[in-house]
């Protein structure tokens, strides 16, 4: 970066560490791989889905890719939970994505705002209640899909220890949860980070790791009140929204 360019760049705030950026890239890749190989299996009665399966090399190949991506997703989820558990419990990381009472209040506040009863939306800290909601739905849905996915992959092994009906139940949970997560991401998440007038054309912070100070002030007003830049290679999270 040339010095004269850096002077032009307004003051930026570190929002995501490189680790989080890589984690999100992996999540995007695996998510769309799983959707591409999974949804056509669920909606196999539609000829478009059948064509997708054929183009991808047949149902056997599609299943293998889905299983492989599932295993990688499982590993991603395990390391995510382990790293955050260790970080929060032993390294005093701020559990900034934990849903708090304020998020409940914010959501009620926004409901009234949307109905025209309040003039302004709720002010949020580092993560809004919407972002937390997407995070937890994807995480919980992901865990469910990992578990049910393994059950569907190894029905013979599973029925050695569990009643047979767990398999059709797992199938319903797996495919429905997948549908819910998929729709959640393509409607809400993509609206919030791409189409929403606040961030349009795109909120790049998860790819660059930084967010303009002005944007932080606009999107995360409570965070910008007390900010601190973190080192790029630091795994520690930024402190959560401290209400002052």
């Amino acid at each position: 970066m040339s010095p004269d360019l850096s002077t032009r760049i307004p003051q930026r705030i570190r929002r995501f560490s490189t680790y989080r950026i890589i984690e999100h890239w992996l999540l995007i890749t695996l998510f769309f791989t799983l959707v591409l190989t999974g949804l056509p299996q669920k909606l196999h009665q539609f000829s478009l889905c059948q064509s997708i399966v054929l183009v991808l090399g047949g149902i056997d190949t599609v299943r293998s890719v889905h299983h492989f991506a599932g295993v990688l997703f499982f590993m991603l989820a395990v390391q995510h939970i382990a790293v955050n558990f260790i970080g929060i419990v032993f390294r005093q990381w701020e559990p900034s994505l934990l849903i708090t009472l304020k998020d409940m209040k914010d959501s009620m506040h926004n409901a009234r705002y949307y109905l025209g009863l309040l003039p302004n939306p709720a002010l949020c800290g580092r993560f809004s209640y919407k972002e937390k909601c997407v995070y937890w739905l994807v995480l919980i849905g992901g865990i469910q899909m990992i578990m049910t996915g393994f059950m569907l992959w190894f029905p013979v092994l599973v029925t050695k220890y569990l009643p047979g009906q767990f398999i059709p139940a797992a199938k319903i949970v797996h495919s429905s949860e997948a549908m819910i997560t998929f729709l959640l991401v393509v409607t809400w998440h993509l609206y919030e980070v791409i189409l929403s007038p606040d961030v349009f054309p795109i909120n790049k912070s998860i790819f660059t790791g930084f967010m303009d100070q002005q944007q932080v002030a606009r999107l995360h007003p409570l965070q910008s009140a007390e900010r601190r830049e973190i080192e790029a290679d630091d795994l520690t999270e930024m402190p959560g929204d401290r209400r002052s």
Partner: peptide, 13 residues
């Protein structure tokens, strides 16, 4: 499914 156990047929409705 050579290793199928007694519960296995119930996996089918």
């Amino acid at each position: 499914h050579p290793k199928a156990s007694e519960n296995f047929p119930d996996a089918w409705l």
